[in-house]
Design a binder for these strands. Sequence first.
RNA 1: GGUCUCUUAGUAUAACGGUUAGUACAACGGGUUUUCAUCCCGUCAACGCGGGUUCGACUCCCGCAGAGAUCACCA
Length: 485
Amino acid sequence: MQKIITRFAPSPTGYIHIGNVRSAIYPYLAARQTNGHFILRIEDTDQARYVEGATDLIIDTLKWLGLEWDEGPEVGGDNAPYFQTERREIYLEWAKKLIEKGRAYADPTDSETIQKYRDEDNAKKVPYLYRNHRPETFPEWEEGMPIRFKADPKPREWHDEVMGDLKAGPEVQDDIVLIKKDGLPTYNFAHIVDDFLMHVNMVARGVEYLSSTPNYLALYEAFGIDQPLLVSLPHILAPTGNKKLGKRDGAKSVTAYREDGVLPEAMLNYLACLGWNDGTEQEIYTKEELIEKFSLDRIQNSGARYDEVKLLWMNGQWIRKIVDEQGIDALYPRTEGFWPESAKNYEDEYKKRVLAIIYDRLKTLSDLREMTSYFFEDPKFDIEQLLTNKFVKKFSESELTALLVESISKLESLKTWDEPSLKDALNELLASTGRKPAELFSLIRISVSFAPFSPALDLTLNVLGRETTLARLNKVKTALSLDQQ
RNA sequence: GGUCUCUUAGUAUAACGGUUAGUACAACGGGUUUUCAUCCCGUCAACGCGGGUUCGACUCCCGCAGAGAUCACCA
């Protein structure tokens, strides 16, 4: 298979969000699959939109997702530099080559005149094309003057790896600006030059570039260079409406999900499979499996709606997958920073025991904060919560007290405090009290946790320990006894 | 408006002329000694519309409709 040399070429205008990270993931997978090259190039030619620190955000996001690059910032490479502003001489040189060939020209027209052309055409209801207003003669280029391509409008056909065979007429091909007044290149020009010099043979980007493609084809032709494989990626749609997901829709940065306790494996899995599948019914893929099974021609050619619920489901799957395959010790280090404040003085071993009984109900790691607090601090004592429980409320307070007394006495008598003993003890209590599990267990469970839910009772009591369990049960018993007096 | 693209359940998708249109998330119901979750079982739910071609069309062709993209010295 041909080695894919491709790139992710973001503009440093802000964070990477769910809606635009696909154009990093799919090229990455294609490059890795073919033992090719994945390049990170920073397209910072728009000085007005440049955001300080955005490059670091981009780098951070790629690293978190595990999309390592072979060339680019931090790692360097044979085709450095990888910031376009550091390559401005190269673009100028290449633009001048086109001027020499008669395929580009320095344009002296000022912006007011250009606007006048546009207004006139709009008034006449004819499509505005700058080439219809192309100056008769061109001046020598000098600094501060834009350079425009001299279009060669004609019917063009090409193949897109996702969209299939496409064609466009001459009416969309124009004298596009190659070098701006500020001496920096436009995206339209810079990416052509860079991709060629960096030996890129596959270009993946959003579908919004589809209508510019004929102009790019004209540039490849003018330079006499081979066009790369073209890959148009449909948009990811916002949860509501039909617009592509963007920051205006509140699209969170990819790394914001890291703080929410989403695993990068789950994020990569979800995003890769949003608009792509391998034709089987597999849902959970490791990065390695994605690399192996990825194929451009199975990318969906319509937009896909972002569904955070499914992402969270997938994250839960991944949390369980890690524990099932590698054990709790593999998950535990990932939980740092997600525990309740009160857990900070507890030993790792204790927190691991908590994690081991709670992990299968986590959707995100940050659920730990809400779900485990009663393992680290006494829960807020709320007798009403106990008395209004749908099973507990069937009993009078004296009945409850009696049940608690019997339970406490049974648990106190245990020689060993471990899971099997607790399980036996609880079963014996069911038999001796004649109560249903729902009734007895709800009473004990709520008394020790005051939480809306908890793991199985024997597991919970085992981790809480004898002392804590009995203390909390006694506290409830006392409260109920006082009530009755 | 011109040009281009897209269209299977609420969502993501499978199907590459012949299936009771499959799967997953969500929703709803049930099961696994309480709860929440996991896991298991089940229910609901889709081929945008209209013409062709064909013995037969989600699949091929042509219209239409709807949606999206683009028409910058932004990328």
